[in-house]
């Protein structure tokens, strides 16, 4: 039986460390903010980091939401008051847009703490 060398052990430890580190990647998956939309009694979920445009049907007509560059807004809506369109872009977890006449509610949900995210921004500036 050939003996193992110190280099063997070093490579083994390197491999093991990367293997164990890969477990921590689990959490990064769930930290992605999600856009939750409710219209009527149905619910939709989208990833904030994936650009897309979707229309939702309500009692009045269609409300079209656009996700782009990690931000969300209502592009257009068949409602009269257009408050949802005027709300503009939202991007942080907890922020929301509602189109009450058309019964569409859009909210960003994220598992990251908003405070710590702001702190991180402060540090990086």
């Amino acid at each position: 039986m050939k003996k193992l060398t110190p280099i063997d052990i070093i490579i083994f430890i390197l491999f093991l460390t990367i293997g164990i580190m890969s477990f921590t990647l689990y959490s990064t998956v769930s930290e992605n903010p999600e856009v939750h939309v409710t219209a009527g009694d149905k619910e939709w979920v989208y990833d904030l980091s994936v650009d897309t445009t979707v229309s939702f049907e309500g009692p009045i007509g269609f409300t079209t939401m656009e996700i782009s560059n990690n931000r969300v807004h209502v592009h257009d809506s068949d409602c009269k008051n257009q408050i949802c369109v005027l709300t503009g872009w939202i991007e942080k977890p907890g922020e929301w847009i509602a189109c009450l006449p058309n019964n569409v509610f859009i909210v960003i949900e994220g598992h990251t703490d908003i405070a710590t995210e702001e702190e991180a921004d402060d540090i990086s500036y």
Binding site: K3, I7, D8, I11, I18
Partner: peptide
């Protein structure tokens, strides 16, 4: 790099990684 200082176990591990 290591010639005789590394056995095939280390080589195999490195390759798999």
């Amino acid at each position: 790099l290591f010639k005789d200082k590394v056995s095939r176990v280390g080589i195999s591990l490195g390759g798999a990684l």
